[in-house]
Amino acid sequence: MERKIGETLLSVDHISLSFGGVKALTDISFSIREKEVFAIIGPNGAGKTSMLNVINGFYHPQEGEITYKGVHRKQMRSHEAAVQGIARTFQNVALFKGMSTLDNIMTGRIIRMKRNLFWQAMYLGPARKEEMENREFVEDIIDFLEIQAIRRTPVGRLPYGLQKRVELGRALAMEPELLLLDEPMAGMNIEEKQDMCRFILDVNDQYGTTIALIEHDMGVVMDISDRVVVLDYGKKLADGSPDEVRANQDVIDAYLGVPH
């Protein structure tokens, strides 16, 4: 399988983030290249999720710079990140509980739907056409993720594994260029993990989406990612290919512990 890893898509430079006196991230720099699968790993509380939050503009770092598609920014804004093609999933599933699977995935299309209130109220002509086009797009995603059977089920009733899949579907509906996955496989059994890995690799392969993921399962990480960055206590320990990282002494110390 030959994939083309391209130029740098996003880079963060010397990012520091703190809440009051608590330092969540200190001087972090790394870059994510187009079409690669990039993993962020580290022990609990290392600042992985905070890092994703900074990238898609939910947290605003005090220092540093984010460069996305060649544009330098002090910080991202969530809404802007979405429009610019950054989608994400969450560690604790953040679906819209009151809505069906179909509607949840359709929300991912909202940034592409432009018809105004008036046309909506009439549901004629342009509004209906737009709705149908987007519905078709969403149905493709539903097919891709093999969740046809739960199309109309309210997501609150779905088991955890399926909820994660729906959430991935919602992120995909945004047609993202950069997809951030926060522990996509947490709490899954081995089969569900295999399915999820397959979906992630397929997305990367078929749509050429760049993927940045946080994962605790080292087997999975080493298997599917092209490059890895390791965080510990808000600092960067290492980055590089899975093999390089595996051999890094700091990383081994952080994971296995060193006698003080």
Binding site: H79, K97, G98, R115, R170, A171, M174
Partner: peptide, 23 residues
């Protein structure tokens, strides 16, 4: 039932997630 209604419901169910998907 259109995208405006969905953006309302998304806001209702989880405002943070709604913002992050671009609402």
């Amino acid at each position: 039932r259109g995208h405006i209604g969905r953006s309302w419901m998304a806001m209702r169910d989880m405002d943070i997630a709604a913002e992050i998907i671009g609402i």
